[in-house]
Design a protein around this nucleic acid. Structure first.
Length: 429
DNA sequence: TCTGGGGTCCTAGGACCC
DNA sequence: TCTGGGGTCCTAGGACCC
């Protein structure tokens, strides 16, 4: 194992076995911002929520990380640690576009790609009869190609996903960490449990209570202990600690749920305000479902209180459809089950799950037929559907904020911070 | 100035059926 | 009428990931 700068294939030890890469884009969102704003390069850049509201850091550039800023840190803390940082809200479409360019590069090296997230992917580059290129050479070429896009990546190379994933974290940014076949345990065993995917703060603490601190201790732990900590995943987690993984599956997983939530800068405690937030979130979800042609069976409502406690309510509903106007009475009813008037609420979320993977439908409602005026004979649900179609069309043409329903608008005005001129401003990230 | 948003998966308990 | 057990569906909550 080690870091390589060599590009001489002859000098490399032979690679016997599968070769899995984990390609992780370095400080991705911040790097894209520095690429697009040349005067931001070399300076601390933070992509995230507003420090004066309830934002957190999404990504900090490496210059900002020197001040101790990191992902998921409250923006207010980050602003204190790094007062001169350049702040920006994310431009998710732009990041997606860059991400796609990266994925195209990877697909040029192997068709066996699993995209884990917008900035991370596994790639099977095992040598074949047709392509004898050494995996280390492939990794170096990929790093060059991605450099040429104007962003950088760190790569872990090993014989399985758990090994390459952990390897990729060893040297950032722009690192390449290689674990040769047969050296998996030597690499994994001394590492602390938290480096492994699936071991978070809770599992780490539980393991510690059994005296388990390293991956070697996980690998050698009593099965009953692992069962207590990991439940039905006990065997899988032990295998991971040994560097053993199930095969690389490259079919993308179907979408299981769609949700939107918002944390408000100032908590709200009236039914009117909370219902308005529910309506706004429901609208976002409905619009996404209509765009994707997805229809679910279960409606979800989520509330977070001032003390950060979360309450949820979910209901399976026949013919849920994609029309949020139809969901609203249900959601308002569900609100009663988890909230009492006067209690301060800082977050409201709405979601839909229970999609039939077999039946990804065409859009449920066609676009509004401009030739034909809305018929007075339409049923109430049909009228609501036509209204939504018209609204989607206008949003597509003129932007999301060009039209809002009255129940959203009035309340947004009330919950909006006084410094904001547009009632919808605080919804933007 | 504490602690986002979008997801997946697991567990436990209750209702209901056989 | 009382009883147990298994299976399935549904809901609430929470751990974890990026």
């Amino acid at each position: 194992m080690g870091n390589f700068s060599s590009t001489d294939q002859e000098a490399l030890p032979e690679w016997n076995g599968p070769a899995i890469l984990l390609v992780d884009l370095d400080a991705f969102f911040a790097s894209v911002e520095q690429l697009d704003h040349p005067d931001w390069r070399g300076k601390p850049v933070i992509v995230g929520g507003d420090p004066t509201k309830r934002g957190v850091v999404s990504t900090a550039s490496y210059e900002a990380r020197k001040f101790g800023v990191h992902s998921a840190m409250p923006s207010s803390t980050a602003a204190r640690l790094c007062p001169d940082a350049i702040w920006t809200h994310g431009r998710h479409d732009r990041y997606k576009e860059m991400s796609q360019k990266v994925m195209e590069i990877l697909l040029g090296y192997s068709p066996h790609l699993i995209q884990v997230s917008i900035d991370e992917a596994f790639l099977d580059v095992s040598p074949t009869r047709v392509n004898r290129t050494h995996p280390v050479i492939v990794a170096q070429q990929i790093q060059c190609d991605i450099d040429a896009l104007g962003v950088t990546c760190s790569i872990g190379l090993g014989t399985s996903k758990p090994v390459s994933k952990i390897a990729s974290d060893q040297d950032k940014p722009h690192g390449l960490t290689v674990v040769y076949p047969g050296h998996e345990r030597e690499f994994l065993f001394p590492l602390p449990t938290k480096v492994m995917s699936g071991i978070g703060p809770v599992a780490q603490k539980q393991l510690k209570e059994y005296g388990i601190r390293t991956l070697q201790e996980v690998a050698e732990a009593d099965q009953a202990v692992l069962k207590k900590v990991f439940g039905k995943n006990a065997t899988m987690m032990r295998n991971r600690a040994l560097g053993i993984d199930s095969a690389l599956r490259d079919e993308p997983e179907p979408v299981k749920s769609v949700s939107n939530e918002i944390s408000v800068a100032e908590s709200v405690d009236t039914r009117h305000d909370i219902e308005a937030l529910i309506a706004t979130m429901a609208h976002k979800v409905g619009r996404r479902l209509r765009k994707k042609g997805l229809e679910g069976t279960t409606l979800h409502l989520k509330i977070r209180y001032e003390n950060l406690k979360i309450r949820t309510c979910q209901r399976k509903i026949a013919n849920l459809g994609t029309n949020e106007l139809v969901w609203l009475p249900q959601l308002y009813d569900m609100l009663d089950e988890i909230w009492s008037p006067g209690v301060l609420v800082r977050l409201v979320g709405v979601g839909v799950s229970g999609f039939d993977p077999e039946a990804v439908q065409e859009q449920l409602f066609g676009l509004v037929d401009e030739q034909q005026p809305t018929s007075p004979l339409l049923t109430e649900p049909e009228k609501k559907a036509a209204l939504l179609d018209a609204r989607d069309l206008i949003a597509d043409k003129f932007g999301e904020r060009s039209l809002q329903f009255g129940h959203e608008f009035t309340s947004l005005k009330q919950t909006t911070n006084s410094s904001s001129k547009n009632p919808g401003d605080y919804l933007d990230r």
